[in-house]
């Protein structure tokens, strides 16, 4: 059953946001959430007893949001704001709810308000980055993601990967369109996207984007320490741009955590091979294979079993190549 939008509409009108009025936000309460329903009942009782407590409306909004009742959650956030709740909280929350509801422009309005009030709110920047991303404003998204990673005290690895990916999706046209719209210039410089210009070739653009993505990764890891999920993506990008020494250096930071990680040692071999360091690469492959072989066949995961075959093939191919080279020399 869809809930009435009347109350929500009145609240939005009161806050000057009428754009959302005519659009349904969610399917309302249709699923069974017994735990949530019980908690909502408890909050309803508390609100009946203390109708002007904004914290109770925030709590109600959280519960409504957890069962994806976006309209009810939005109304509760607005009510909380009306009652004096922290606008930094309610504006970001509203932006998130509206984004979830697919109302990107209204969501953006709230995100802009939140960022105008608190330019260093990582959460607000992240929400706005996602709004931009879903609206195909890729350069703006990249800029906001960069800022979010910079100001968040603890950027989650998943967010960092998302932010890195956003950098890679920026085109020249995106960047040019952004030129006058960049709000966080220092971040744009860090990101590198600001340096994109009309004359850049696709190769230049790709290189700039990778540099931006790597900058995001390194900004995050300066706070988090070496996180292999982030560093592994950075290794891929270093390889993609042909900086094989950079890839090896990054792999080595992961191996400090897990010196016998067969996958990473094999990847180190790949990076060395791509960088033309065949002997070192073969040593890495040999080492990785020896480590895999320390596990009896029955104790290998499918991934490690496949790795063993792959390494054996690489070593065998190289051996054959060397033999062929020797034969040619002898002939």
């Amino acid at each position: 059953m869809r809930r009435s939008f009347r109350a929500l509409g009145q609240s939005l009108i009161a806050t000057g946001l009428t754009a959302v009025l005519m659009i349904g936000l969610s399917p309302g309460i249709s699923q069974s959430h017994p735990d949530i329903s019980e908690a909502e009942d408890a909050v309803a009782h508390a609100i009946a007893a203390s109708p002007n407590d904004p914290a109770l409306y925030l709590r109600r909004a959280t519960l409504q949001r957890s069962r994806k009742d976006w309209d009810a959650a939005a109304a509760s956030y607005i009510k909380a704001a009306d009652l004096g709740a922290d606008r930094d909280v309610t504006d970001v929350a509203l932006a998130s709810v509206l984004l979830d509801a697919g109302l990107h422009e209204t969501a953006l309005m709230h995100a802009d308000i939140a960022i105008a009030r608190s330019p260093n709110s990582g959460k607000a920047s992240l929400v706005r980055a996602r709004i931009h991303a879903r609206s195909d404003r890729r350069a703006q998204a990249a800029s906001d993601y960069t800022h979010a990673v910079k100001v968040l005290e603890h950027p989650e690895p998943g967010v960092v990967l998302e932010a890195m990916q956003a950098q890679l999706e920026v085109s020249v046209q995106d960047a040019v369109e952004l030129e006058d719209a960049v709000e966080h210039e220092d971040d744009a410089v860090t990101a590198g996207n600001e340096m994109l210009s009309d004359g850049d070739s696709p190769v230049d653009v790709a290189e700039q984007n990778i540099r931006s993505a790597l900058a995001v990764a390194d900004t995050a890891m300066a706070k988090l320490g070496i996180v292999p999920t982030i560093q592994s993506r950075a290794v891929e990008l270093e390889t993609q741009r042909g900086r094989h020494d950079g890839a090896v250096a990054r792999i080595d930071t992961m191996l400090e955590q897990a010196p016998r990680h067969e996958i990473w040692i094999a990847e180190r071999g790949d990076a060395l091979m791509a960088g033309g360091k065949k002997t070192e690469a073969m040593n890495a492959y040999t080492k990785a294979l020896a480590l895999v072989n320390e596990r009896p066949a029955s104790k290998r995961s499918p991934k490690l079993a496949a790795l063993a075959i792959e390494l054996e093939n690489k070593l065998s191919d190289q051996h054959n190549n060397n033999a062929g080279d020797n034969l040619n020399e002898n002939q």
Binding site: E156, P157, G225, I226, T229, A258, H261
Partner: peptide, 9 residues
């Protein structure tokens, strides 16, 4: 002897 998740979640 695992590796860093980078997350408290």
């Amino acid at each position: 002897n695992g590796v860093a998740s980078g997350s408290e979640s």
